[in-house]
Measured scan of single mutants.
Amino acid sequence: NQASVVANQLIPINTALTLVMMRSEVVTPVGIPAEDIPRLVGMQVNRAVPLGTTLMPDMVKGYA
């Protein structure tokens, strides 16, 4: 099963992502693939992302 990117903490709206904010986990539904974590660093979320939430492509500005 493919691992997805999951929020390791509450990520406030418009926050630029850092490695410490994300972890990989096998979840359903599948979100952004864990191998894209390096690409996500520095990108901003367009909404608040609660701890444990799977990051979906539409949550990250410029990802989709």
Score class of each variant (00 low, 15 high):
N1Y: 13
N1A: 15
N1I: 15
N1Q: 15
N1D: 15
N1F: 07
N1C: 14
Q2G: 15
A3S: 11
S4N: 02
V6S: 04
V6P: 01
V6I: 13
V6Q: 11
V6E: 03
A7F: 01
N8Q: 12
N8I: 15
N8D: 15
Q9E: 12
Q9C: 06
Q9A: 04
L10F: 08
L10G: 11
L10T: 08
L10R: 05
I11T: 02
I11F: 02
I11G: 00
P12M: 11
P12F: 11
P12D: 14
P12G: 09
I13K: 03
I13H: 09
N14L: 06
N14K: 04
T15I: 05
T15A: 06
A16I: 06
L17G: 01
L17Q: 00
L17M: 08
L17K: 00
L17Y: 00
L17N: 00
L17R: 00
T18V: 04
T18P: 02
T18W: 06
T18S: 12
T18A: 03
T18F: 09
L19P: 11
L19E: 07
L19Y: 13
L19G: 07
V20K: 13
V20R: 04
M21A: 04
M21G: 04
M22W: 02
M22K: 00
M22H: 00
R23K: 14
R23T: 13
S24D: 10
S24Q: 13
E25F: 02
E25P: 01
V27Y: 08
V27I: 04
T28W: 03
T28N: 06
T28H: 04
T28G: 06
P29K: 06
V30M: 06
V30T: 14
V30S: 11
V30H: 09
V30F: 09
I32D: 00
I32S: 02
P33G: 08
P33Y: 12
A34P: 10
A34E: 15
E35F: 07
E35N: 09
E35C: 15
D36R: 04
D36V: 07
D36L: 10
I37C: 03
I37G: 11
P38M: 06
R39K: 12
R39H: 07
R39L: 10
R39F: 10
L40W: 02
L40N: 01
L40Y: 05
L40Q: 01
L40M: 12
V41C: 03
V41R: 05
G42N: 09
G42P: 01
G42M: 12
M43C: 08
M43Q: 15
Q44G: 08
Q44T: 11
Q44E: 09
Q44M: 13
V45A: 15
N46I: 13
N46Y: 04
N46P: 05
N46Q: 13
N46V: 13
R47V: 14
R47G: 08
A48M: 14
A48I: 11
V49L: 12
V49F: 02
V49H: 02
V49N: 01
P50R: 10
P50Y: 08
P50K: 09
P50W: 15
L51D: 11
L51V: 07
L51R: 07
G52K: 05
T53F: 13
T53D: 12
T54C: 02
T54D: 01
L55A: 01
L55H: 00
L55M: 08
M56N: 13
M56W: 13
M56P: 01
P57Q: 11
P57A: 13
P57Y: 03
P57T: 14
P57S: 11
D58H: 10
M59P: 00
M59G: 06
V60Q: 01
V60T: 02
V60L: 08
K61P: 12
K61Q: 10
K61T: 10
K61F: 04
K61G: 04
G62Y: 09
G62A: 05
G62K: 04
A64C: 15
A64N: 08
A64M: 14
